[in-house]
Amino acid sequence: MTAQRQRILSAVEDPLPFKAPFTITGYTFTAWPVVVARLETGGPAGEGEASGVYYRDENPAAMLATIESVQEEIEAGADRQTLRNLLPAGGARNALDCALWDLESRQAGRPVWALAGLEAPRPLITTFTIGAADPGKMADDALGYVQARSLKLKLTGDPDLEAERLRAVRKARPDVWIGVDANQGLTPDTLEALLPALVDCDVKLLEQPFAIGREADLEGIKLPLPVAADESVQGLADIEALVGRFDIVNIKLDKCGGLTEGLMMVAEARRLGLGVMVGNMAGSSLALAPGFLLGQLCDIVDLDGPVFISRDRDPPVVYEDGHVSYPANGWGGGA
């Protein structure tokens, strides 16, 4: 017997072209396709956007197929906790989870932050990301982020080139907090060679230096700066194994499958004495909005995805004085 529908679920792909090519370890992107899930009830509707996890080969076609596989359950009234049992972590679950939060908010007439037991959101200092390029180009990009108080540099693994990049950016912007993201591109040897430049340039964070599966290599290295796990932590179940190797957990909703699990991850990381960072894959302001709420609980915020795309959604996120904020009348606003 087919369950009676309480909602109508739809999902579509949106290509979201980049303003310019963007390079990290092993990849250059010119667009960032996303999936938008929408739940309609005849009254309020909820939406969620997800881009999936590129290094897990998630793509819009796969995410759409995954969403379709649970359409009957979602339309019959499955809630967010049931969704965690229906689907594994990833982009499809993120889109649905965030659409469910948005729908609940609009049906209740209360913002998501209140439903989640959070305080009213405040603007947050965010990093602005500089893709790996020629050192001079990266320095120019750093100068282009006039308002930035915090920059994150993408690295690709060559310690000599990375040192040049770091010194060029630090010379251009002596005033900002700098973190670096290796995206699994370093080894113990190349990290050791890079350490003097990290210290000289006063780098405050090293993100995901080694490949997934090589986390134990961090145990024998004394580092003068905190290390964040990104690719090495996909969801809640991965956090405990980070203790003693990493200092900070980078939570991205596309990885963990939505705001519901993201909130659980913050609580678990804090319980284990780890710092917390919120990041985002590229995407529009619709994807950033739930991450912005999670960022209210985090030590480091990296929410600059909409900066790179050539068109955004309404209402757009606001970047001002190095801070990010999201309008109260947008996703999860309760109106």
Rank of each mutant, 00 (worst) to 15 (best):
D97I: 11
I248F: 00
D134Y: 00
E72G: 06
G291F: 02
K255S: 12
G257Y: 03
K137Q: 14
V53L: 13
A62T: 14
A335T: 13
A108M: 02
F128I: 01
E192Y: 00
D102F: 08
P290H: 05
P196K: 01
F246V: 08
G334S: 09
A99H: 03
Q296C: 14
D254K: 03
G43E: 03
M265L: 13
V301S: 12
D200I: 06
P316E: 14
K154E: 04
L103F: 09
P188S: 04
M281P: 10
Q184E: 15
A65L: 12
P174E: 03
L191M: 06
Y145P: 02
M281R: 10
S325P: 09
M265D: 11
A148Y: 07
E119H: 05
L242T: 09
A197M: 08
K152W: 00
G109I: 07
D14W: 08
R245H: 10
T23S: 15
L186T: 02
E320I: 10
L153W: 01
P209S: 04
L186F: 10
L83G: 11
S285R: 07
E73H: 08
D181F: 05
W32P: 01
A61F: 01
F128A: 09
G291H: 15
W32F: 14
Y319P: 03
R311G: 13
L274N: 05
T190M: 00
G305A: 15
E240T: 13
A50Y: 01
L39Q: 04
T2W: 00
